[in-house]
């Protein structure tokens, strides 16, 4: 109800705005950003990784749009929700956009979080800077050696968790789709805490990024058993993907979650954003991603890049929206299990 009201408001705003913009329509194509300041909202901590990605991109987006400046503004709070709520009500004139973890937003919305005032499927997606494929790992000494072992386990698979983050929901969806009993133990603080918990055997396994697991896998402390990605990881060709082991009727759910995770570090604008601005920004972000100077800087700063263009990202949203109704009960059950 609330959402429809907001959508209506945003729509009305867009209408009024486009009406105002009509007289300038001709000029808009010839560099509508010339000399303007674009505000790039990052709803995360100023010292965090997300902000470092945003700051890496900002000057190049300015360069390729012709804008005077792309100003990074942090609006941290509520796990990215606060800043995104802010973007939701901004004028869709293309002067205010955001950059953050897209799956976090979609999952916060699907799980029915009270703080969410936006509809993540209605944002205009402008491109992705990076994404890190997730992997499911178990402790090195655990009796579980493969995803088949998990499926034939006669007790719940115990997952030490930091709380209701993307991994929490992803794992809940995977457990439902692949068909294993899952017990999520929340209350751990930080990656070190959960990591040690599975190494010592307090828990069975967790989801994490490939980069993070490499040293532990090499040392034999952790064992990868499942890749949450479209294809197998080249370094671990024996580790199956989630799509290979999923029950046929749940394939949509797993595809949705893979698509969600794939959108990870993405740029997006308010709903019904001005089409000219959308096109300009999508182009500029793609060009920025392809800029060798940006790539070199990213490498120097340890920021792995895996860009994707805005149109591709927008298509993912279509698939996610399609499957999202089916995901809701699973997410709700996962939340209820820790209450």
């Amino acid at each position: 109800m609330k959402t429809t009201w907001k959508t209506a408001l945003a729509g009305a705003l867009a209408l009024v705005l486009s009406a105002v913009m009509v007289p300038f329509g001709g000029e808009a194509t010839a560099g509508m950003y010339d000399g303007k300041v674009i505000t790039l909202i990052v709803p995360n901590s100023p010292s965090g990784r997300m902000t470092r990605y945003a700051r890496l991109y900002a000057p190049y987006i300015a360069k390729y749009t012709g804008a005077k400046e792309v100003r990074v503004v942090n609006k941290k709070g509520g796990g990215g929700v606060k800043g995104t709520n802010f973007l939701w009500v901004q004028e869709p004139d293309g002067m205010t956009i955001a950059f953050t973890s897209v799956p976090t937003l979609i999952l916060a919305q699907l799980s029915g979080s009270e703080a969410v005032q936006f509809d993540a499927t209605k944002f205009v997606y402008l491109g992705r800077a990076a994404t890190e494929p997730r992997v499911m790992v178990v402790g090195g000494n655990n009796e579980i050696k493969s995803i088949q072992d998990v499926m034939s386990l006669n007790r719940p698979f115990i997952n030490p968790s930091q709380g209701t983050d993307e991994d929490f929901y992803t794992l809940a969806i995977l457990a439902d789709a692949i068909g294993f009993d899952l017990k999520i133990v929340t209350g751990y603080e930080g990656q070190a805490d959960t990591g040690v918990a599975i190494i010592k055997g307090d828990g069975d396994g967790l989801l994490t990024s490939w980069a993070y697991t490499i040293p532990m896998v090499e040392a034999g402390d952790m064992r990868p058993i499942l890749t949450i990605w479209e294809e197998r990881h080249t370094d671990y060709p024996d580790v199956p993907t989630a799509l290979e082991v999923v029950k046929a009727e749940k394939k949509d759910a797993v595809e949705a979650i893979i698509n969600m995770l794939a959108m990870h570090r993405g740029f997006f604008g308010p709903p019904n954003m001005d089409p000219t601005a959308t096109a300009e920004l999508r182009k500029a972000i793609s060009m920025a991603s392809a800029d060798p100077e940006l790539q070199a800087k990213g490498k120097e700063q340890g920021l792995i890049l895996l860009p994707s263009d805005g149109e591709t990202e927008q298509k993912r949203i279509v698939q996610i929206t399609k499957a999202s109704q089916g995901l809701k009960p699973v997410l709700k059950a996962a939340l209820d299990s820790i209450k």
Partner: peptide, 18 residues
């Protein structure tokens, strides 16, 4: 509450959520 994902004593404020 990080353990049960329950907003406690926040009175609906997003600021207090953190």
């Amino acid at each position: 509450d990080p353990v049960t994902a329950t907003p406690r004593f926040t009175f609906g404020s997003i600021f207090l959520l953190d």
